[in-house]
């Protein structure tokens, strides 16, 4: 039982770490397109939404 709880805690910790990695490297991947102004704001949204959610609607 104790071992099962530890395995569940381990999987949860791994997924938590994955979540923090994804958030941490957003700048390293898309920061330059965001900062250089290549990505323009869509109506009703901001640059951040477009970086993450709208492939094919740039420039």
């Amino acid at each position: 039982m104790e071992n099962q709880i530890l395995v569940i805690a381990m999987v949860a910790s791994g997924l938590f770490f994955g979540w923090t990695i994804g958030s941490h490297y957003t700048g390293a991947t898309m920061g330059m397109a965001y900062g250089s102004g290549v990505i323009k704001s869509p109506p009703g949204g901001d640059d951040f939404d477009r970086v993450l959610l709208a492939p094919g609607s740039y420039l």
């Binding site: 770490f17 994955g18 957003t26 700048g27 920061g31 959610l53």
Partner: peptide, 17 residues
């Protein structure tokens, strides 16, 4: 998990970099 992280809490570092 990483994709969800980028979508939910990516803004602070994106702004900084």
């Amino acid at each position: 998990a990483m994709a969800i992280g980028a979508l939910t809490w990516g803004r602070p570092i994106l702004e900084k970099v």
